[in-house]
Every structure is written in structure tokens, then in C-alpha cells.
Design a binder for these strands. Structure first.
Lengths: 150, 150
DNA sequence: ATATTTTAAGACAAAATTGTCTTAATTCAG
DNA sequence: CTGAATTAAGACAATTTTGTCTTAAAATAT
């Protein structure tokens, strides 16, 4: 899998959050029900996004999480980096430290262009782009078909 | 990391094998020393490549492993698929089963082009391409600088 | 034939990831 | 102020990945 499960869950949750009002907080329990993800596990993942200042959280009744900025202003790359780190956007395929233009590995040249493309699409795509796409076309963001955007 | 460690080790080993004579078998011990990979772990990985008919193995003195076809005729994709499976070349970023043109997820369109590009470069690049690149330019395929192609 | 070298196979251990649970801290409602 | 709802934090368990070790099987050389 290209991203860890944590990262996929983080993407699903943040894309969904971009589809609802940013005024109110949404409870993690509500999110975990909606997205069919274990509540406690999702809590831990969202804490990472909160620590990365992509989400804001609030305790107590009426508490929950919400995007800290407009969905149009948060890129998919930011979410991925907050959870899986920057490796996918920067790292050598063979995992060689310091691999780069100066000191490449044999796969460097064939991979660099593709890696840059991955970086590009994740940098230029916002959470809002994804939530809009999903909501307008009524696409699912969970394995089962039960998910609804409303 | 984009590929599992097993997969990276398998790539390093098969690229190296493409740089030497296909007549003789190279012992896994020799490979593991050269590539600085645990002997037993590498053995298991190479068994997967042998099971996938990318390598041939021979027991006993003078035994070892060698490419089962010319290095120019084995793609990087075959090696990756034999170890990590086809997911990276086919799978949805959000991990949704059945995600595709018919039944996409919100990320499908933005990802498909990049995924196809990954598929392309791994399909059109052979083990020989990589070993030639590495040998001619004397590039490393291990983290330390001790590796030598000769 | 026998001993040596080497891969094959699989049990086992360690580490990382994924998932669960409990307790504490904070916020809101009455 | 008190109680209920909710996130924060971290201990713990399960699973997967990574790595090690032992024994068996096969091939070579003498």
C-alpha cells in the first residue's frame, strides 16, 4: 500500500471534514461512525493532525474536531506528511540515505520524475477539491457503500 | 516508504545479478555480503523471486541463484510485483476495493495519471537498464559506500 | 559412498504498525 | 457547583513485517 492505514484514515477524515461547516466541531465518535473507523484509533490519528495544526480540537459537549484553515487552503500533501512523513515525496526508491542529484542510485533518474509528479498532484490538490469532487458526484470514501456526505 | 524492505532488498539483489554473468550461479552468502543484507532474510526474499520464476536456484557447491532470463528481459515491475504484489500499480490511494473508472473515489482522477506513470516507468525499465546505469557511472546500491560492482 | 557446500523450509524472535481500553483533563448544560 | 460529554494521553494487545536460527534436502568433489 502506498500510504499507511493511519494515513488513509487521516485522509478520509480530513476530506470529510472539508465537506461540512468549519464553524462547528464534529465529534470524533460521529466521524468514526460515519467513516467506519475504530473510534480510539481514529482519535490517535486525528491527534497527529491536530498536533500538525491542520485540525483544531475542543473538549466537552459540542466539542470535537474541525479544520484549522479553509479546506481550499490545506493540501493533501500536508495531511500525508503529518502522518506518514515526507519520505514518499522525497525519498530514494532503494532507500539510500543522501540519494540525490549529487550522489544518485541507479534508479534515481528513472524515479525522480515520477516522484516529482506525486509531489505535484498532492501539493496542488486541496481537501476542498476532494470533498467537492466527492460530494458533487456522490462518491464513496469508505469501503462499504453506506457512506453518505450529507 | 514506497516499497517494503523486502522489496528494496529484492530490487538491489536482482539489479546486481543483472550486472554479472548469467552463466554461473552466485551464492546467496556472497550476495548478502556484497549487499550488506542479512543472509537468512535475503534467502527468503530470493526464494520469492525464484518462486516467481525470475531467478533460478541451484543447491550445493557452485550453487546459488541467477537470473532466469536476460536482464534486459526482466522489468522492475516484475520484481516489485513478485514481492510486494501489484497494489502499487493498480490500487486506489484510499484503499477502496473496486475503486476504478466505474466506481471511483474522490481521489481516483487525481491519482490515476500518476499511478499510470509509476506503472509505465517500472514496466519500461529493465534490470539491465539499472545495472548498466549503475556500473557505467559507478553508483552505489547500498547505504554504505563500500559496495563495488566488479 | 561420504563429506562439504549450498539452497529450502519453517520455527521462532524482535520490531513496527494497527487496534483497544482505561484514566485524566476540559468544556458545556443545568 | 455538579454531572455529562468529549478529547488527551498513554498503557496494553493483536497483527504484520522484519530478522534469526535450525534442520532437511540436494548437488559437488574427493
Amino acid at each position: 500500500m502506498i500510504f499507511s492505514k493511519s494515513c488513509v484514515y487521516g485522509l478520509r477524515a480530513s476530506i470529510y471534514l472539508a465537506s461540512i461547516s468549519r464553524e462547528k466541531y464534529m465529534s470524533i465518535k460521529g466521524l468514526s461512525d460515519k467513516l467506519d473507523i475504530s473510534f480510539h484509533f481514529l482519535t490517535k490519528i486525528l491527534q497527529e493532525l491536530t498536533a500538525a495544526d491542520l485540525l483544531e480540537s475542543m473538549k466537552g459537549p459540542k466539542g470535537g474536531v474541525r479544520l484549522s484553515r479553509r479546506g481550499s487552503d490545506i493540501t493533501l500533501k500536508e495531511v500525508v506528511e503529518a502522518i506518514d512523513g515526507p519520505a514518499i515525496f522525497t525519498e530514494c526508491v532503494l532507500g539510500l540515505p543522501g540519494c540525490g542529484h549529487e550522489k544518485p542510485c541507479p534508479m534515481h533518474d528513472m524515479w525522480e520524475g515520477t516522484r516529482d509528479k506525486i509531489n505535484d498532484v498532492f501539493t496542488t490538490t486541496s481537501l476542498q477539491d476532494m470533498s467537492k469532487e466527492g460530494k458533487e458526484k456522490d462518491l464513496r470514501i469508505t469501503p462499504d457503500g453506506k457512506f453518505i456526505w450529507s
